[in-house]
């Protein structure tokens, strides 16, 4: 129990934010209407993805100095889970865009850059598959992972700000802060971020444990 309290916390937070996110009141705005609730489901995906990719960079750096197989496994599994969250972020964003911008994919800079940053990590997985020898694979993929991370940060956080984008919070469009006058949305949004980050971390630990058991059996 003392070890697993954070899993319960994560589950409770996600259940709370799913229910409250669909039921609690939100500001009424033109165009956005009820789609503003997507904030609770779309943005936490990206936060979870960033946290998971940061974990993987941490373990990649560690595996370069320790040369341990476990660190490499941790790095690749957190990327696997992070990619799932990234794809979910793209999908939730696309569904939202259908109702507000009129198209699932309108080649908005934010959409394009997010897709390219997912491509970076697909390239990482392709690189891993291209190398047979385990130690060499661990080393080279760790190096590519560390090399790609700053680029991902530039893609997601710097470049969309330089271009005109329809995405809320970009290019002069107001973010949710300015709508949320009575802090009703904050009460759901922050727990949602924390909850999804914990769930993402939990999935990653489970996947890591499965992979390490598989490796032992070989």
């Amino acid at each position: 129990m003392s070890k697993n309290w954070w899993k319960i916390l994560g589950a409770v937070l996600v259940i709370y934010t799913t229910v409250a996110g669909l039921l609690l009141g939100v500001p009424h705005l033109n165009i956005l209407n009820e789609t503003i609730r997507n904030l609770y489901f779309h943005v936490p995906m990206w936060f979870a993805m960033i946290v998971l990719f940061s974990i993987s960079v941490f373990y990649s750096i560690k595996s370069l100095s320790s040369k341990s197989e476990i660190d490499d496994l941790r790095a690749v599994e957190s990327i696997n889970v992070g990619i799932v969250f990234g794809v979910l972020g793209l999908v939730t964003g696309a569904v939202w865009a259908k109702f507000t911008w009129g198209q699932y994919w309108s080649f908005d800079p934010k959409q394009n850059f997010a897709a390219i940053s997912i491509l970076l990590y697909f390239a990482y997985l392709v690189l891993r598959n291209a190398i047979d020898e385990e130690q060499k694979r661990a080393k080279i993929s760790a190096i590519y992972n560390i090399f790609a991370f700053p680029m991902m940060v530039v893609l997601l956080f710097v470049l969309p700000r330089l271009q005109s984008s329809l995405h809320p919070g970009n290019g002069g469009n107001p973010g949710f802060n300015s709508y949320d006058l009575d802090s009703r949305m904050r009460a759901v949004f922050y727990p949602a971020c924390l909850g999804w980050i914990i769930i993402g971390y939990w999935i990653y630990t489970i996947r890591f444990r499965i992979r390490s058991i598989e490796n032992k059996q070989l």
Binding site: V126, L127, A130, I140, I143, V154
Partner: peptide
Amino acid sequence: AIASKAGNGGMLMAVLSFPIIIP
């Protein structure tokens, strides 16, 4: 350098470098 260490050249070079060069 990464592609040459990974052992199979041209194809990997394109896959690895395009996402990095795009921004």
